[in-house]
Design a protein around this nucleic acid. Structure first.
Length: 573
RNA sequence: CGGAGUGUAGCUCAGCUUGGUAGAGCACCACGUUCGGGACGUGGGGGUCGGAGGUUCAAAUCCUCUCAUUCCGACCA
């Protein structure tokens, strides 16, 4: 491709509304343009990357025996009503009507459609197992689209759905998909981890998320220091303290703590470390009740865990200030478990603290020197908090460290949630009707492009992993317009590179070299060769990879072979 | 949906407090000088100042409403 006829829309300045580096670089490099909140056009250069990602996913899915199909993005309401999700999916589902006022939605996912298809087409156990996939545009009316295509409303997803007679067969396909995802993300050139995930509202036996590791990731992942164990922090268990609680030393006293509301303020005011202070959070329970959760001051509530507690409303929502005032008689900063008549869940770690500080349920007053079993009843303890760096690993080996990740893939064992709701079954060997068991497997294709940049960039721009770079090689001749000899040589080499099958972007714009170099680096082309009149004299061409500090000189006649070897070296990894 | 902020040229922003002919840099067009790391000069094109209403002799500027958008909290590929 020649830059003179290829639209490179690079920006020198960073657009003001782009927050994270991948979004900034995607805009600056001219990969995407925003149409409206959460809606992006893919410019030609960005589309090249997107297609390369899709092709890797497609070949690996095919290799794993999955079969590609394509379902409509617009879906009739009836199927969603049948599964119950027309009611439950909520406002994220974009509902639309046709000219006859019939209700449809723009598909955020395709369980209903594929289940309907399978119940019509698949009659016999002999046709199972089967794994269908598609690569297609989805729409989710996100509450807050952000970070460009990282969390957009319209996005491209690879979604696969497998159907089985029994859970053993499901497990086999699930394991195969796990291995396939591992191959895919490896080929994409990304640093990633598979982590145990919450099955959430979908239910089922097993679920893994695939995360690209990056500082800007929205998810936190806990790793074991000793084993391969990794788990989403949402799900990571914490345990009762290994050592017994220290003996009580202080006596309980009521102290004035005017205007001390947060743990930090309280801790500074009373000169007690945060881990000596207990905080009490009030959340909504069933039947308009209020439930108290007690945690150590330095610990964070895990809302996923809390929402699973008996009597607590799911999803978790906090009690409002007026409700708390009416129920307890004081405001949020002075709550505590002493003489609290609400149903109370105490975290394991909070139970292990002696002589603690807590709110007195009177405005501006706290207790100090409080002890479980003496000043208030000894409670049962629960797992309420988020795991922290240095906590024991849930798998029992070593401690955990926390890193951030971007979720780019998720595999689920669905079980019979959809197939039973929609009566999708086959005849088994005995001629009996059996409801099929399902798995589903998603990859965020557009998100991968952003995640790859998030993980691979420097001050000059994007550094594409070789397999998804929009072009493999930039050919940048200097002062092309001043030397017909150089132009002839560059044109000739460009043709030779094309004949050699090397995906080349030929910068024939006759710009100043600084601009060409800056553009080629911004758009992240992995390899660059520079031609000049000077080089023609010496018979050499300059080569530099995107990550090299120094350029090297290559004899003109060896350059094709040299580039070919560079490309092979990368794809062999 | 709650909280905070921003809307002025394609992009980055100034001007608004204290109302008085709409600006700069980058980008774009022309010409010239330059040209191996985002050059320079001269000239030029481009804006109903997000929209509507109001106050005023006069509104980018003050007031009201509205729309869009970004950031911080609950969902998810």
């Amino acid at each position: 491709m020649r830059t003179s006829t290829y639209p490179l829309h690079t920006l020198k300045e960073t657009p003001a509304d782009a927050e994270i580096i991948s979004h900034q670089l995607m805009l600056r490099a001219g990969l995407i343009r925003r149409l409206a909140s959460g809606l992006y056009s893919w410019m030609p250069l960005g589309l090249r990357v997107l297609r390369k990602v899709e092709n890797i996913i497609r070949t690996e899915m095919d290799r794993a025996g999955a079969v590609e199909l394509l379902m409509p993005s617009i879906q009739p309401a009836e199927l969603w009503q049948e599964s119950g999700r027309w009611e439950h999916y909520g406002p994220e589902l974009l509902r639309i009507q046709d000219r006859h006022s019939r209700e449809f939605c723009y598909g955020p996912t395709h369980e209903e459609i594929i289940t309907d298809l399978v119940r019509r087409e698949i009659r016999s156990y002999k046709q199972l197992p089967v794994n269908f996939y598609q690569i297609q545009t989805k729409f989710r009316d996100e509450i807050r689209p952000r970070f460009g295509v990282m969390r957009s409303r319209e996005f491209i997803m690879k979604d696969a759905y497998s159907f089985h007679l029994d859970s053993k067969s499901l497990q086999q396909t699930y394991d195969l998909m796990y291995a396939t995802y591992t191959r895919i993300f490896t080929r994409l050139g990304l640093k990633f981890r598979a982590v145990l995930a919450d099955t959430g509202s979908i239910g089922g036996n097993a679920s893994h998320e695939f995360h690209v590791l990056a500082e800007s990731g929205e998810d936190a992942i806990a790793f074991s220091s000793e084993s391969a164990f990794a788990v989403n922090v949402e799900l990571a268990e914490t345990f009762p303290a290994a050592t017994p609680r220290p003996a009580a030393q202080a006596s309980m006293q009521l102290v004035d703590t005017p205007d001390q509301h947060t743990i930090d303020e309280l801790s500074a005011f009373l000169a007690a470390p945060p881990e000596q202070c207990l905080k009490t959070l009030l959340v909504k329970g069933e039947d308009d009740t209020i439930i108290a959760l007690v945690l150590r001051g330095d610990h964070a509530l895990n809302s996923v865990k809390a929402a699973k507690l008996d009597g607590v409303l799911s999803p978790l929502s906090f009690s409002t200030e007026p409700e708390i005032l009416a129920c307890v008689g004081c405001r949020v900063g002075s709550l505590g478990p002493v003489n609290l008549t609400l149903r109370t869940y105490v975290d394991h770690a909070a139970l292990a603290v002696a002589d603690f500080v807590c709110g007195a349920n009177q405005e501006g007053k706290h207790y100090i020197g409080v002890n479980w079993g003496r000043d208030l009843p000894e409670p049962e303890s629960f797992d309420l908090r988020c795991i922290q760096d240095g906590d024991p690993s849930p798998d029992g080996s070593g401690t955990v460290s926390i890193v951030r990740g971007i979720e780019v893939g998720h595999i689920f064992q669905l079980g019979t949630k959809y197939s039973s709701a929609m009566n999708a079954g086959v005849l088994d060997e005995d001629g009996k009707h059996r409801i099929v068991t399902m798995g589903c497997y998603g990859i965020g294709v557009t998100r991968i492009v952003a995640a790859a940049i998030e993980q691979n960039h420097d001050n000059h721009g994007i550094i594409w992993p070789s397999n998804i770079a929009p072009f493999q090689l930039a050919l940048a001749p200097i002062n092309l317009h001043k030397s017909s000899r150089l132009k002839d040589a560059a044109d000739k080499l460009y043709i030779q590179l094309q004949e050699a099958g090397i995906d080349t972007l030929y910068d024939d714009r006759t710009l100043r070299p600084g601009i060409m170099f800056a553009d080629m680096e911004l758009i992240g082309i992995p390899h660059r060769i520079v031609m000049s009149d000077r080089g023609l004299e010496s018979g050499e061409i300059e080569y530099k990879s995107r990550t090299d500090d120094q350029a090297t000189q290559i004899p003109r006649e060896q350059v094709i072979e040299f580039i070919r070897q560079k490309l092979q070296a990368v794809s062999a990894n």
